[in-house]
Design a protein around this nucleic acid. Sequence first.
DNA 1: TAGATTGTTAATCGATTAACAATC
DNA 2: TAGATTGTTAATCGATTAACAATC
Lengths: 215, 215
Amino acid sequence: MAEKGISQAVIGRLPRYYRYLGELKTQGVERISSHELSKLMHVTASQIRQDFNNFGGFGQQGYGYNVLYLHNEIGNLLGIHKKHDMILIGAGKLGQAVVGYINAKDMPYSFKAAFDINKDLIGTKVGDLPVMSMEDMPSYALENHIEIAALTVPRTVAVETAEKLVACNIRAIWNFAHIDLRVPEHIEVENVHLLDSLMRLSYNLQRHQDAEAKR
Amino acid sequence: MAEKGISQAVIGRLPRYYRYLGELKTQGVERISSHELSKLMHVTASQIRQDFNNFGGFGQQGYGYNVLYLHNEIGNLLGIHKKHDMILIGAGKLGQAVVGYINAKDMPYSFKAAFDINKDLIGTKVGDLPVMSMEDMPSYALENHIEIAALTVPRTVAVETAEKLVACNIRAIWNFAHIDLRVPEHIEVENVHLLDSLMRLSYNLQRHQDAEAKR
DNA sequence: TAGATTGTTAATCGATTAACAATC
DNA sequence: TAGATTGTTAATCGATTAACAATC
C-alpha cells in the first residue's frame, strides 16, 4: 500500500467499487475478473485494473480478484476499519435526516452528538443523540477527539461555524451549506451541494429536450 | 447558444459560477473580468473563459463580463427561467428534509406533492405538501406533466420505483438511494450518494493523516 | 489612440483506453 | 502445459493552461 498522489478521479470511484463488491460478497461470489466487473459496473476493464494498481494490485494473474479480499482492501483504503465518531453542527431538518441516514447504516461512521444555537432544539434529541448548545461544542469535540463534523447550518453562518470547528481540531468537514468554505490546507472538506446537483439535473434535462425537439 | 456536446466537467461548474455571480450581483458589482473572478473562485482565468466560450461567449473585449447579463445567461442554461414542478417519492426523513431545503429556496424548482407506500404517512403533510398513496402517483404525474422526481426510498425498492417513474413519463430522476439506477437512455439521472461522499471524505482524511505521520 | 481583456488557437498535462508481456 | 487474466507500458483522448491576436 505505497500509494501517494492518487488522483481524485480514482478516489471518487472507490466507494462505488466498494458497493459492488459488497453486493457480490452478499451473493456469495468468490472471485471476479476485471472483465466481469466491468460489464456489471458499465466501465472499462482497463480502468478497473488501472484503478486497483494505483494501490499496488489486488489481483492474481489467470485468476482475477478475490471478492472478499478486494472488498476488505478497498474498505481499508476508505477508512472502514476504524471507528469514526462524528458530530452534527446544525440540528435542523436536514441535519436530522443526515444523522438518521448515516447512523442507520451498518458502518463505522456514526454521529455521537448534535449542536445548535436554537434554544428550542437544545435539550431535545435527534434520533438518540442529545442536542447540545453550540457553546459546549469545543469542549465536547476536544475531549472526544472528534475528527469529522457534518455542517448543516444556514449558509449565512456556515463560514464562521467552520472556523470554530477548525479551532477545535476538527480535521474533516462534511459541508451541506451552499457556500464554499475556506479553511486551512490541512482540513479536508467534502461538499454536498444539493442545489448544484439539482441544477445539473435541470441543465441536462433541458439540453436533452432541446436535442429531441430538433429531430 | 449553439452549444452541443458540452462536457460534464463544464456543466458541473456552471452552478458554482451561477452562485458566485449571484453573490456579486447582490453586492452591486456591475462588471468583472475573468482574472478577478478567477481570484475569487480559485480557478484559472483561462478555464473561466474557455467554459463560457462553450456557449458562445458572454463577454466583451477590453471590458470583461457584465455580471447581471452573465448571471442571467447561466441561469438560462441551467433552466432557471422556467418553473419546474417536482414530486417526491418516499416521504421519510430524508425526503422531508429535501423538500424543506428546496422549497425554501427562491428558485423555480419546487415540490408539489409527495408519495409513499406507508399508510401512516399517507394523508399527512410534508411542509405544505400532501402525502399521497404511491398508487395515485401515475395519474398525478401524468396529469400535471411532472418531469422531475426526487427518489428518497430505501435502496431495496429504488430500482423498481424508478421503473414506475419512467412509465409515467418522468424525464429526470434525482436519486438519493444508494444504488445505481438503470434507466433508458432518454432519462436523466443525477445521483446524491451521501455515503459515497462520506467515504471520500474519510479516505482523504486518512491519507492526509498518514502523510503527516510520516513527517 | 492606448490599454485592457476577451475569444480562440496552440501547448501541456492528466486520465482513459488499448495492447501485450508476465505469470498464475 | 495451455488458458486466462493480471500488471504495466504505450497510445489515445479529453481537459486544462498558456499564449496571443482580435477588438472593444
